[in-house]
Amino acid sequence: MESPAADDYLKTVYAHTEWQDAPITPSVLAAKLGIAPSSVTEMVKKLAAAGLVSHVPYGAVRLTDAGTRRALAMLRRHRLIETWLVREFGYAWDEVHDEAEVLEHTISDRLLEGIDVRLGRPRFDPHGDAIPDAAGDVEREPFVLLADAAPGHNGRVLRVDDRDPALLRALEAAGVIVGAEIEVLAGGIAVGGSEIDVDGAARSVWLSA
C-alpha cells in the first residue's frame, strides 16, 4: 500500500509513542492528523489489511514490524530534510516542518543519502527527535517530560515538540533550545541562572533524566 497518506498515518502512529508509552487511539490519530474520525477508520482498515498496523474496533492502533520499518524510513526522510533546511538554508526550527512534509515524499533515496553524508550523518533533528539510520536503528538516552520532572532536577533539553511554531519561537527566545541546561523550579524553570515561565512548555519539553 504505497501512498503519502499511508506514510503520514504510519509516521504519526510511531511518533505518538516515541516520548511516552500510551498507545494511540483512532480518535487521537484523527485529531493529530486533522482528519474526520470516519476517514481515519477507513484508512486504518486499509493499513491493517496491508499488514502495516494491528487494530481491534475501538482499541489502540499499533504498528506491525512491517509498519514500524516503513514509519522509521519516512521519519528518517522527514528529520534529515528538517536538519538540512536548518543547516544549509538558514531556516528557523519553527519553519521546517511543513516544508519537510512536502519534500519527504519527493526526493530520491540517492539524494537522501547525499544529504545524510553532507550533514555528517546527524543523529538528531533540530527539535531533538532521533534520526533513524539507514537500517532503521534509533539512539535515544533516558528522558523525562518537563511536567513530570521534580523541582531541583537539572537536565539538558533533549527534545522540544515541534507542533506549535509560536511556542517554538517563545522557547528559543527564552533560551530553551536543544542542548540547553535547565533547572526545574517549583513554579517554572531556570536557564543560565535566569528564572523564566514559558506557558505551554511543561508538556512540550523533554529533559535528560
Rank of each mutant, 00 (worst) to 15 (best):
S3T: 12
Y9H: 09
T12D: 05
V13T: 06
V13K: 03
A15D: 12
H16W: 11
Q20C: 01
T25G: 05
T25S: 13
P26T: 09
P26M: 02
L29I: 04
L29T: 01
A30V: 10
A31W: 05
G34N: 11
I35W: 08
S39M: 06
V40K: 07
E42A: 14
K46T: 12
A49Y: 09
G51D: 12
S54K: 12
H55G: 06
H55Y: 14
V56H: 08
P57R: 10
Y58V: 06
G59R: 08
G59H: 06
R62S: 13
D65S: 15
D65Y: 08
A66D: 13
G67P: 03
R69F: 01
L72R: 15
A73T: 09
L75E: 12
R76E: 04
R79M: 05
L85S: 01
E88I: 07
E88D: 11
G90T: 11
A92E: 15
A92R: 15
W93T: 15
D94V: 03
D94P: 03
D98P: 00
E99P: 00
E99Q: 08
L103F: 12
E104D: 03
H105K: 13
T106R: 14
T106A: 10
I107L: 15
R110N: 01
D116K: 01
L119D: 06
G120A: 06
P122D: 00
P126T: 03
G128D: 03
P132W: 04
G136C: 08
G136M: 10
G136A: 10
D137R: 15
V138K: 05
E141A: 13
P142M: 11
F143Y: 14
A150I: 04
P151D: 11
N154V: 12
N154M: 09
G155T: 07
V157T: 08
L158G: 02
L158T: 01
A170N: 14
A170K: 15
A170W: 05
L171D: 07
A174P: 13
V176R: 04
G179I: 05
E181M: 05
A190T: 09
G192K: 05
G193E: 06
G193S: 08
G193M: 08
S194I: 11
I196E: 06
D199P: 03
D199Q: 11
A201W: 04
A201T: 02
A202I: 08
L207Y: 06
A209L: 06
